[in-house]
Design a protein around this nucleic acid. Structure first.
Lengths: 269, 269
DNA sequence: TAGTGGTCTAGACCACCGT
DNA sequence: CGGTGGTCTAGACCACTAA
């Protein structure tokens, strides 16, 4: 690929976009992920193989993959290959769960380096209890967040995260109904593990990034009761929108957290 | 540098550490930043010059600088050079301020791509009012957070961030006294701009990363008054520890935020 | 125009992994 | 052992910036 027509990959054609070669390759790789050509947990072709396929040097493929790895779309494993990231693997399982117990941070405090990465959730043994799961027409505000037409079908889930007997988080979740056909209370009860792993395994939807807005709010009567807290207790409200490939919003989630013994962790760099 | 003794830079010697060449170069560059050889806002030597100095290829220097750029220690500017990052520049000024007004997110919501980066704080015109600045012996808990000996000298600052007439954040800050000699209330009043820019300009201390723990708490009597809110109002407590080069903690800050019209923004990826 | 970072290539060798 | 990602080099050309 170094004679003519540089700014357009000769395989597939990434559209009339002018971008460095490695970005075009990146786009092609993302398409492969999005289309399911390579599934979560599976390896993608080796660098030399991809270089041959796209008629570019290995270095160029490498730079494309570097970006995907930086965005956690893919995981490199020396000597083995490059694998499609999955919420089913322990390593990345709790990537989006930032709530941690206040104590047990001894290690983190001692080595700030380790705390910097949002890695792992030590001793985070929380059990999930589904309170409700039903289908309804999207409230306008939910429809807006999920880029749906007004009153399109959505699935809503309410569930409680508990540490031992102690309720910690009340999640209220909305999902586009069209993408989550067959999601029922029974299906949820039968699943043990992170929700995102279920979505990935059963509905072929992988969350790749999210934005969150945090506020402190007072617990209303109902939520206070299910969280076994006093009405008016300050709760940490975490409003999240999660996106799949192509920046498509596929989840709106509001988590109400009791933060007397837990905190939301974040690293700025 | 390709005949002998690969795993040790021949200039300076980064210690008995075995690491890829580019990491050793990276270490040397960080030392240059830390020692003040290159100051915030100034350019570091060009890639070819550094390659010559350290006797490595330009590609190796490049990879080292890539990492520094990814960590925001340095900023690349095509055609001009690579510059030491500074809190005085508009681009990176509010890198650590995650509080945003609820509305005015139209743009961010429309293009999630833009919202992903913590870039900029649109229309964030908050004025700072210093309520208190004095020196005292560190409470044990503060000493621990800042890695100081018990009851060593610290400076404490209390200040209010206001949007118009409306108090939004009450900050309680602790700094190691030894590093901040001459920091007084007058000095703070005379400064207009971010605190971190002042620290950088007057005390040669650059914050490069931070960790935060967020909780929802009820406003006590005193804080409720200074925030012009009712006692018991839910406040978002942001407890931050900031670090300079070498992972040295140099600031403990507790921010109490009124989040009825503002929220804390975060992007997960 | 000269100097800077940005892209792309080709090839060498190393470290790690599974068989 | 062969295959994979990881490092390092050398050189070419491009895009941008400033004088």
């Amino acid at each position: 690929m170094n004679e003519a027509a540089r700014p357009a990959a000769d395989a597939g054609d990434a559209g009339p976009t002018f971008a460095p070669l490695y970005r075009q390759i990146r786009t092609l790789l993302v398409r492969g992920l999005q289309s399911g050509e390579w599934k979560p947990g599976e390896p993608i072709p080796s660098e030399v193989e991809l270089a041959a396929r796209y008629r570019v040097s290995q270095g160029t493929v490498r730079k494309a993959i570097d970006e995907l790895a930086a965005e956690n779309l893919v995981v490199r494993r020396q000597g083995r290959g490059t694998f499609v990231a999955s919420h089913r693997e322990v390593r990345t399982q709790f990537r989006f769960l930032r709530l941690r117990p206040d104590e047990a941070e001894g290690a983190a405090a001692a080595s700030p380096q380790a705390a910097q990465e949002g890695e792992g959730a030590p001793g985070m043994v929380m059990t999930s209890r589904v309170l409700e799961c039903r289908r309804l027409r999207a409230p306008s505000e939910v429809a807006r967040a999920l880029s749906l037409r007004a009153s399109e079908a959505v699935v809503t889930i309410r569930r409680l995260l508990e540490a031992g007997e102690r309720p910690v988080v009340l999640d209220e979740i909305w999902l586009p109904g069209a993408r989550f056909r067959g999601l029922t209370s029974e299906r949820l009860d039968a699943w043990h593990g992170p929700l995102y792993a279920l979505f990935e395994a059963e509905f072929a939807i992988r969350m790749i990034r999210a934005t969150e807005r945090l506020k402190a709010v007072a617990a209303d009567r109902a939520r206070a009761r299910t969280l076994q807290a006093a009405e008016g207790t300050p709760l940490l409200l975490v409003e999240r929108i999660s996106y799949t490939y192509g920046d498509q919003p596929v989840e709106l989630r509001r988590g109400y957290c009791v933060t007397d013994k837990y905190h939301y962790f974040n690293a700025l760099s």
